[in-house]
């Protein structure tokens, strides 16, 4: 396949993300990377679970957490997962415009989520003096949730870069795999969040 065919395909194939060898490699490689990320987050979850009662005299999880904000953030992130599914749906139908729109919605929801998280951290720090340094619980909480937040931020930058870079030229076999794995990444962030709201917040509230 010549470079010209990749950049300006006459016809989009059924699975544009896997039409080239490079695309297939990216697809498989990224999934493998997510396998590794699973262990990374498991280690962070494990650390949090081991330290969840180590308050060092400071506030504990039951006292700290409120469910309302977490519920709203959860809904935002879950919905963003669906909107990125819509984006991929339009990618497969070779409808670049609609894909960009849905990616835009995804980014907006992700931003709102991040805003919520920052507000929440700020709240804990100022209202409860619960910080990264105040107790082992604090260290592990901010590390786990912060790692996830960092992933969200990176995902947003990544998707926006892709959107801007390709805005003028539309879909081709070179950028389709990039869009596809970005959306895989976004779903993975959502998977991690499902466990965060369950293990950190809900279990923290139960005590």
């Amino acid at each position: 396949m010549s470079n010209e065919d990749i950049l300006n395909p006459k016809q989009m194939p059924r699975e544009p993300e896997k039409a080239t060898l490079e695309g297939k490699n990216k697809f498989i490689g990224f999934w493998f990377f997510l396998g590794g990320e699973t262990v990374l987050f498991a280690s962070l979850f494990g650390t949090f679970l081991a330290l969840r009662n180590s308050t060092a005299g400071g506030p504990g999880t039951e006292e700290l957490f409120g469910l309302e904000l977490v519920f709203i953030m959860t809904m935002l992130l879950l919905t963003s997962s669906l909107t990125s599914v819509y984006a991929m749906y339009h990618m497969k139908n070779n409808d670049f415009g609609k894909m960009q729109v849905w990616l835009g919605v995804t980014v907006a929801l992700g931003l709102a989520f991040l805003g919520g998280e920052l507000y929440e951290f700020n709240h804990y720090i100022h209202e409860y003096e619960f910080t990264f340094r105040s107790s082992a619980l604090g260290s592990s909480f901010y590390t786990l949730v912060g790692f996830h937040g960092g992933h969200v931020l990176f995902g947003l930058l990544w998707i926006v870069t892709l959107m801007v870079r390709n805005a003028k030229r539309g879909l081709n076999l070179y950028n389709a795999p990039k869009f596809y794995i970005a959306s895989l990444y976004w779903h993975f962030i959502d998977v991690v969040w499902v466990f965060i709201f369950t293990v950190v917040y809900l279990m923290g509230k139960v005590g």
Binding site: W31, F32, L34, V39, A42, F45, G46, L49, A50
Partner: peptide
């Protein structure tokens, strides 16, 4: 959402299961 059920996802599924297995051991330990 991530199409793990679809064809051509055998290797990804294997590696995700691998990751989940190690993750499970880790969390059990901790």
């Amino acid at each position: 959402f991530m199409h793990l059920k679809n064809k051509g996802h055998e290797m990804p599924a294997l590696m995700i299961y691998g990751g989940i297995a190690v993750a499970f051991m880790t969390i059990l330990t901790f």
